[in-house]
Amino acid sequence: MTDNSDQTTHFGYQTVNKEEKVEKVAEVFHSVAAKYDLMNDLMSMGIHRVWKRHTIACSGARSGNKILDLAGGTGDLTAKFSKIVGSEGQVVLADINESMLKVGRAKLHDMGIVGNVECVQANAEALPFADNTFDVITIAFGLRNVTDKDAALRSMYRVLKPGGRLLVLEFSKPTTEALTKIYDWYSFNLLPNMGKVITNDAESYQYLAESIRMHPDQETLKGMMEEAGFEETSYQNLTGGIVALHKGYKF
């Protein structure tokens, strides 16, 4: 009997071939790219901006740094980092999805942010950068969509400079049963309906809700980061564990 476990993975609650997941995730983000920012504000009631500001505050970013905003999508973190690193620094906005990157590039251009930002289409599992390139790497709400998360964490470790830090902002496991029940009801009832009304795409938001449930919990992700080589790993629960910010260093 052939073991196909290493050829398959999860796409939400479905079990699919790894190549098929890459295509399906791409379809989701091609579909939602144009209204991604609007839906983020509606889905989180604007709280995603607070989570992202907190991530930037914890990054230790400073003038002259080189920063990788991985799975950076429409460029929320890139815009803030660009101001911090200044003309001597650089921010690389990287995303695997061409549609998301196109929206992000246009938004940054409209904001007048062009001089110290580079947009790169890249797969997190095999980053196209030299070893020891970045002072800080952030990945916000992107890791759960990566097919091989372990490979992605190893790739991030490789391109991070010694002394650099990784910050992973991602949906996680609520800390109480009551909050879990409320969150589940919201995710599987309101969220797909919002997607249907705003983007005419309920299925993509059904997947996003399912992908959150399939993502490793706080302790599991912490262990995965340590396995990839990161040290002094820690996490902070935000909004009752609906979101967690993981941090790790390369020494």
Rank of each mutant, 00 (worst) to 15 (best):
S5A: 15
D6Y: 15
G12F: 03
G12Y: 03
G12C: 07
Q14L: 14
Q14I: 01
E20H: 07
E20K: 13
V22L: 11
K24W: 05
K24S: 09
V25L: 01
V25S: 02
F29W: 02
F29L: 01
H30V: 08
S31H: 07
A33N: 04
A34G: 09
D37A: 01
M39A: 03
M39F: 08
D41L: 05
L42G: 01
M43I: 10
S44P: 11
M45N: 12
G46T: 08
I47W: 08
H48E: 02
V50Y: 10
W51Q: 05
W51S: 09
W51G: 04
K52F: 03
A57K: 13
A57V: 13
S59D: 11
G60L: 07
G60K: 01
A61V: 05
R62Y: 07
S63D: 13
G64M: 11
K66I: 08
I67H: 12
D69L: 06
L70Q: 01
A71Y: 00
G72V: 05
G73V: 07
T74W: 08
T78A: 03
T78R: 04
A79H: 04
K80T: 13
K80I: 06
V91L: 03
V92C: 15
I96M: 12
N97H: 07
N97A: 09
N97Y: 06
E98N: 05
S99Q: 14
M100N: 10
G104D: 10
R105C: 11
R105S: 08
R105N: 11
A106G: 14
G112T: 06
I113S: 04
N116F: 02
E118K: 14
E118C: 11
V120I: 15
Q121C: 08
E125T: 00
A126W: 13
P128W: 06
A130W: 04
D131I: 07
D131E: 06
N132E: 13
T133S: 14
F134V: 00
L143E: 00
N145C: 00
K149N: 00
R154I: 03
L160K: 04
K161Q: 10
R165N: 15
L167C: 14
E170W: 00
F171N: 07
F171M: 09
A178T: 05
T180D: 12
K181D: 07
K181Q: 10
I182A: 12
N189P: 00
V197I: 08
V197C: 05
A202F: 01
S204N: 07
S204W: 02
Y205H: 14
Q206S: 13
Y207A: 03
Y207K: 04
E210R: 10
E210Y: 09
S211E: 04
S211A: 12
I212P: 15
R213M: 08
R213T: 12
E219Y: 02
E219S: 05
T220Y: 05
L221S: 05
K222Q: 13
G223R: 15
E226V: 13
F230P: 03
F230E: 02
E231F: 11
S234P: 02
G240R: 03
G241H: 04
K247Q: 13
K247G: 14
G248F: 09
